[in-house]
Write a protein that binds this DNA or RNA. Structure first.
Lengths: 315, 315
DNA sequence: ACTGTTTACGTCACGCGTAACGATG
DNA sequence: CATCGTTACGCGTGACGTAAACAGT
């Protein structure tokens, strides 16, 4: 189970195609085919059904393990490399778009290069500084000379980037039971600190019958039109799991990280989404049940890094 | 970072010798040497100091990751293989020696083949059935025809065995803060269920000045003579971490899994050990501070396995 | 001097690409 | 028939063992 094989396996599974995976990885289709059959050979069972390319049950089990393994390999490499490098003169702080919600939002500190640095989280007037503001302030105080770049991207990119050492620090938000940690399934080996939490609301169009209600039980909305915005709102599978319902089927998917766009979609009636209370949505109803909160956690790969100081200051 | 390289790296680090590792792995010294330099080359830094063979800081970082990665690779393989096999006609339940403590001990159910099946945990008359008894009973009820073998071994062997699929189920005991899970560092990806807990005591020789006390703070014993019995008692590093002291230095190490032997050692004054309250030690003092408990957790690799039923019955 | 690691070198296998083949919609 | 996966084959790289050089204790 060479990591290369594993990597092409997950890529093929993602792409649903040998040739697409080959291109993405810079191999020939032939090589990819050989990788897969090497794996299948080694494990003694088919992992993919061909045409269409679909994981077999065995393949699904392998997929559950492959990504975390690759992630951890990346972390290992990054961790080792970090022992060599002198304190960086520049570092990147990555965040999911709503990781700043909770205590209030922050002014959009100069968004940096990198990935999908969308509108960020300039979510209106801040009562008290949010997680991002705290993180930024601390980084800058503890590393006066260091050039800090801020990048906004999806959960997975943040986790992968922190694991691989591309990002020094990550802020990730998500939905969890009140005092549970975020289930960053694949990031178990990264150090994690909770930094903020917030209640949840359902964002609604203004004319929605529920608008103005004092609160609601999510279950009752299982059959509503939902927007799946996994990098921004509570992912629908999480809602399904939390309510034990199999509703919450996406009317459509918004893959972006721009809050404003999502709110526009919601307001204009394309569907609902569960968001932290602090977002400036025109019409919202608090989620009373099940008991869930919006949570922000800080991620970092290595305590000997800048994040160490940060950590002690946040605790 | 080929797993093979990683494996020889951890083996070399464990053995403290290239040649010993070579023998253990069935390679020549030369191959081992090449593996290590391949790794060092790939990562761009020395990982081991030679003569004596000792990890560099970079090597230590890598070691932290290597074992879990290898463990998870094993789990992945085992998980995939499991999707193929029909329900087993025989299964092995592995347990650490004291995983049965907590609610009371159990009669030593026929100890099986395998590893170091020592004296097991026949620790006197049981008030109510312990974790092992519960686990065994449930396995046998849910798998009437299945031949169940019980094996007693150290924590690491249990974890590795469950990960690799050698053991269907594992019971692991350890020391943790009152409602924390056991920190089975490398086993994060295995499913885990707490099944029992117990208070902690320090086992003493009869004539020890503290004998008969109502309770004590561990810190006060930091400088006592301690026996390091990592597979049986609370490992000393755990005590150091929990007390924030750097005492608890081992007078000597007992590598076995036999409780009776350890108690004999303690009683005859060779040193102290922290054990669950339910062990039949002649002279004990409850540990009042720090707040720690002895905990038993059930480990299994796959919910679709026998353990699934078990789980639901234990919950 | 002895033990133990590294280096040099030869062999063999493996991994990848090219290209022909096969299957499927 | 067009697309996509598989198989056959050849080449180069890389992995391992043998054996000689080298370095600590």
């Amino acid at each position: 189970m060479d990591p290369h094989l594993l990597r092409t396996f997950v890529t093929v599974a993602e792409c649903g195609s040998f040739s697409a995976a080959a291109e993405r990885l810079g191999y020939t289709q032939s090589a990819v085919s050989q990788h897969i059959s090497a794996l299948e050979n080694d494990l003694g069972t088919p992992l993919l059904r061909r045409r269409p390319v679909t994981p077999t049950p065995a393949g699904e089990r392998l997929l559950e393990h492959a990504a975390p393994i690759l992630l951890r390999l990346a972390t290992a490499r990054a961790d080792v490399r970090r022992t060599l490098a002198q304190p960086p003169t520049a570092l990147i702080l990555a965040t999911t778009p709503l990781a700043t919600a909770g205590a209030g939002a922050t002014a959009g500190a100069g968004a940096g290069a990198g990935a999908g640095a969308g509108a960020g989280a300039d979510a209106g007037a801040a009562a008290q500084p949010g997680a991002l503001a705290v993180a930024l302030r601390e980084v800058r105080r503890s590393h006066p000379g260091t050039e800090v770049t801020l990048t906004v991207c999806g959960r997975d990119e943040v986790v992968e980037g922190v694991a691989a050492g591309t990002f020094a620090i990550g802020l990730v938000d998500g939905v969890a039971a009140p005092s549970d940690p975020l289930r960053l399934s694949d990031a178990v080996h990264l150090r994690t600190t909770p930094v903020a939490h917030d209640d949840l609301i359902v964002a609604l169009p203004n004319d929605h019958p529920l608008a103005g209600r004092r609160g609601l039980a999510l279950r009752d909305l299982a059959d509503a039109r939902w927007i799946d915005a996994p990098d921004l709102a509570a992912p629908l599978p999480v809602l399904r799991a939390a309510t034990g319902s199999d509703g919450f089927r996406p009317a459509f998917t918004y893959a972006g990280t721009d809050l404003h766009t999502l709110l526009t979609l919601i307001t204009s009636g394309h569907g609902l989404a569960v968001l932290p209370r602090s977002v400036p949505a025109p019409s919202t109803v608090p989620v009373m049940s099940p008991r869930l909160v919006h949570r922000t956690e800080l991620l970092h790969g290595d305590l000997s890094e800048p994040a160490a100081l940060l950590l002690s200051n946040l605790k």
